[in-house]
Structures are given as C-alpha cells and as structure tokens.
C-alpha cells in the first residue's frame, strides 16, 4: 500500500487526482443539475487542436487549451446565431470541426510522438508545474462555487423567478461555463481529452443518488472523485493499466456502486416508507 508512495511520480499523480477530483466532483454537481454534461464533453473535445499545437510547440498544454476553448465557445455562439441552426447543431458542428482539426495536426509529420497521451491523459507524467496549476484551479473553483452558490441554487431551481430574486440567469450560466472551462483545461492533463468528462459527470451522478441536499452532495461527489482517482492510480500502478483510463474506470465503478446504495438510502429514510403527502394534513389558515 505504502510502497508506491515512495515514488515521486506517484506522489505528484496522487496530489494531482486529489485536487482535480475535489474540484471536478463539486463543480460536477452543478454541471449535472444544469444539464451541461453534453456541453462539458464538447468543451473537452474542442480543445484537442490546442493541445496538439502546444505539444508541437513544446509549451505547457494549458497555453494551447485555453485559447482553443475560448475559440470554440465563440464559434458556438456565432453558429447558433445563424437562422435555422439550433444550439445543439452549432455545438456538434464546431466540436467535430475542432476535433477533426486536432486529428489532422496530430497526424502531421511535425507532431511529436506520444500524441495519444493527449487523448487518454498522462497522469503519471504530471510535473510540479502541473500540480501547482491544479492547486490553483482547485482554489479558483472553490472560491467561485462559494461566491456563486446562492445564485446557482436559485437559477437552477427557478429560472423564471431568478430575476425577481436578484439573480441574473445569463450571468450564472456564463460563470458556471467559465468554471467548467477552467476545470476542463486543467483536468485534461491527467485524464486526457476523451476521458476528462468522467470526473465532472460520474461522481456527481453517483452523489445525486445518495444525497438530497446540494452542499452534502457536492462534498460527497468531491470525496468520491478523489477516492476513485486514488483507486485508479493504485490499479494502474499494480496492474500496469493506463493511468487516465484506470481513473475513468474507477469513476464508472463508483457510479455503478451508487445504484444499489442509492436504493438502500431511499428505503431507509424515515419518512419514505409511507407517502407523507397523503398522510400529512394540509395546514388550514
């Protein structure tokens, strides 16, 4: 159990998945409730050309991913304004174009070897700088979620009433997307382009089945994501499987485990044995 901890690359990988898992799990609860799972996946795919360019130029991946994600967001906004093009179609067109571009670049003779690590992640290759970036991300996400909590809660519950409650729905939506973009750009280092969405969606979907309040759900999702991350790394270390894929697999396992557990939790909740709606009299005033 402790032996892998001697290895510096394993230490960095563990810190990296802990930071990314905590931030991604908590943020993921909002992604799930705002119906943004598809958007999360699209964002991740659309940064592929940026990653490849960064790898070719030999600069940190973040420097390629950040402009790519901004470009994709702008292109989606522009395409959606063309009459007769739905938002969903716009996303599909832009994402396939960007991803295709990334593949073209990756297949070019100038691309360095190891491009598949951009697709599947290279969590054991995390440098000290990568870990520091992940720490920065975790802080930004934690502060952002803390400041936005009330607004996100209202805009997600009741879009129509949000304005009268002092919440701007476009602002809440945009702020959430910015946090998601920041999270994706950083998490993609460890999990890769194809698997990064797992850390946002999997733990949150599992926590949703086990908890019926937002804050406990976010804490649980963060905990589950970290747990799955660590378990994935150990699996990878001992079984020799790919790092990012092992983490993604562990996340899927956590979700599958939450299915029967969620059913149990529901059955054991005190007022759920009978239907309270039927037995509780309406108060009369």
């Amino acid at each position: 159990m402790l032996q892998p901890l001697q290895e510096p690359f394993m230490q960095r990988a563990l810190v990296e998945v802990t930071l990314v898992g905590a931030a991604g799990g908590a943020l993921g609860c909002w992604i799930v409730f705002y119906g943004l799972s598809y958007a999360a996946e699209s964002l991740a795919h659309s940064i592929f050309p940026g990653l490849v360019l960064a790898a070719i130029a030999g600069v940190p991946l973040l420097l390629g991913a950040a402009p790519a994600i901004v470009l994709a967001a702008l292109a989606i906004a522009l395409c959606a304004r063309i009459a007769g093009v739905s938002r969903e179609a716009a996303v599909a067109v832009v994402v396939t174009t960007m991803f295709g571009l990334g593949v073209l670049l990756a297949l070019s003779p100038r691309s360095p070897p190891g491009v598949e690590s951009l697709l599947f992640g290279d969590v054991f290759g995390a440098t000290n700088a990568d870990v520091a970036t992940a720490a920065g991300l975790a802080v930004v996400v934690a502060v952002g979620l803390r400041l936005l909590h009330g607004q996100l809660l209202i805009a997600g519950f009741d879009r129509g009433a949000a304005r009268s409650l002092g919440v701007s729905v476009p602002f809440a939506d945009a702020a959430l997307l910015v946090l998601l973009a920041a999270g994706t750009v950083v998490a993609v280092q460890g999990l890769g382009n194809l698997l990064v969405v797992a850390v946002f969606v999997g733990p949150a979907a599992a926590a949703r089945r086990l908890s019926s309040r937002m804050l406990p759900m976010m804490a649980l999702a963060a905990g589950l994501a970290v747990l799955a991350g660590v378990a994935g790394l150990y699996l990878s270390y001992y079984a020799g499987t790919a790092g990012g894929a092992s983490v993604a697999l562990a996340i899927v396992a956590v979700y599958l485990l939450s299915l029967p557990l969620g059913r149990l939790a529901r059955a054991n909740r005190p007022s759920e044995g009978y239907d309270r709606r039927m037995t509780e009299p309406e108060p009369s005033t």
């Binding site: 997600g156 519950f157 009741d158 129509g160 409650l165 937002m214």
Partner: peptide, 27 residues
C-alpha cells in the same frame, strides 16, 4: 414575488423547504 407554474424539474432539486424560502433573502 412569484409562484410559478408547477414544473417537474423542480421536484428532484436537492433543496429543503427552508432553503427555498431562504432564496428570498439573496437580493
């Protein structure tokens, strides 16, 4: 203050009655 039409999506939102009432304090 508004009491909107019933919407299914609100029914599995993870909030208590008290938290919904507290939304009125945000502004």
């Amino acid at each position: 203050g508004t009491v909107p039409q019933t919407e299914r999506s609100r029914l599995d939102y993870p909030v208590s009655a008290l938290e919904v009432a507290m939304m009125g304090t945000l502004s």
